[in-house]
Amino acid sequence: MLHDYPESPEEAASNLRLVLQLMGQHDITPNPRNFALCYEYVLARNPSLNRALDGFFAHGKRLDEAASHNLFDEHIAHGTLGSMQRAQDELKRILRAVMLQLLQTGNDFAQYANGLGLHLSKLENDPNIELLREITREVVKEPREIERSSKDSSTRLTNATEEVELLRKELEDARREASTDPLTGLLNRRAFTTVLTNAIAKAQADDHPLCLLMLDIDHFKNINDTYGHLVGDKVLRFIGRLLAQVVKGQDTLCRFGGEEFAILLPDTALHGAIRVAETIRGRLNGSHLRLADSGQLLGELTASLGVACYRQGESVDEFTQRADKALYEAKRQGRNRVHQEFTPLS
């Protein structure tokens, strides 16, 4: 769910104009963090951030330092402010160096223009052959010096561009790591909550169905106790890969915590969600895992699943709790089964 910035130079220039206009319109302090917030706002690909900023703009509130920090951490950095701050400081260093180099090059051209003006004045006041020769030598020499300076500037700008590209990759890596479970490579719970929040907002606006599956591996503690946590980790990675084969398209999969996984199914009604859950349960129940060194079978691998469909007006927590309640009921009824949540409407 993470994004880079694939815009063409023309699109980036257009976005930059919109960003500067937005910052000027709302008196936003022009620092790198606020620039990142406004750039994401202009791209309109992070609905939760846009809603938060729209709240500030609608009430005429100023985006102060504390609010800027909070918005950046919640909607862009995903908790990696340490890495982001280091990268931001490095970016500022590069930009300062580029600006100084451009100013220096500009000064060289300004001095050359001033010199030409002085030469012209001398010729008008006292034209003679010796002065003409002297000025000719100077006019030829100075552009060569500027050319050397410009080449040096070009080299430095090229180096700065390469540094910025490396920094961009570092920022993307930091953002990706902040959103990913390191064991399975799936989304982590925090990133999934952001996806779920956005999906609920869309479901409310479009009045489309939205279902949530919660999955828990049955008797997973026995695997850890019997074979050790390293084997348990391998089982979790295996399940992550298996689930990724089933979850397709716009559906979103995450490791919710421990041996629990969550699957979000947009535009999916209850019967479709139950069909997905049963497919997953059957695939897991048919798995036969062996220890690599001894070939020993680990035994039957099963999972319990809870299914809930979103109800207009309920919060993220309420929706998640209903799916979790259905999961608990599936385990209470004997495990290795799918249970749908039927809590009556109030």
Rank of each mutant, 00 (worst) to 15 (best):
N159I: 10
H288A: 14
R93W: 05
A199C: 03
C309Y: 00
V140W: 05
D73E: 15
A277H: 10
I263Q: 05
S8V: 00
D207W: 03
E162Q: 14
E134I: 06
V247M: 06
S48F: 02
D108I: 08
F192R: 03
A160H: 07
L37F: 01
P266Q: 09
A330L: 11
Q340W: 14
D173E: 14
R148F: 08
G313A: 05
H208C: 13
L116K: 05
R137G: 00
N34W: 01
L53C: 04
L187D: 02
Y310E: 04
A191T: 06
K221L: 12
L345Q: 13
V98P: 00
R283C: 07
D27Y: 05
A52S: 08
A191P: 01
Q104T: 15
E318L: 12
A262D: 11
H119S: 06
Q333T: 09
E162V: 09
N46V: 12
V139W: 00
K151L: 12
K92H: 03
L171G: 05
L213P: 05
L243F: 15
E314S: 10
V19Y: 01
S149C: 07
H78C: 13
D54S: 02
G55N: 07
D293K: 12
G286M: 13
A308H: 03
A326Y: 07
L253D: 11
H3T: 13
E318M: 12
L116P: 01
G82S: 11
A205Y: 14
Q104N: 09
D181C: 06
E65R: 10
P209T: 07
L236K: 07
N50R: 09
L102G: 11
L186S: 06
P344T: 12
G249E: 14
V316K: 03
E163F: 01
L100W: 06
A199K: 07
H219S: 06
A97P: 00
R45Q: 13
N70H: 14
M84N: 02
A199Q: 12
A323T: 11
R45E: 15
E172M: 08
L186N: 04
Q333R: 15
D126W: 02
F220D: 15
P344S: 12
L305R: 04
R237L: 11
F342C: 10
G79Y: 11
R156K: 14
T155H: 10
E329N: 06
R175E: 15
K122G: 03
H119G: 01
V140R: 10
I129G: 00
E162M: 09
E162D: 08
I223R: 01
G249Q: 13
Q85F: 04
A203P: 03
T136K: 04
D181L: 10
Y227F: 15
A13Q: 15
R156E: 11
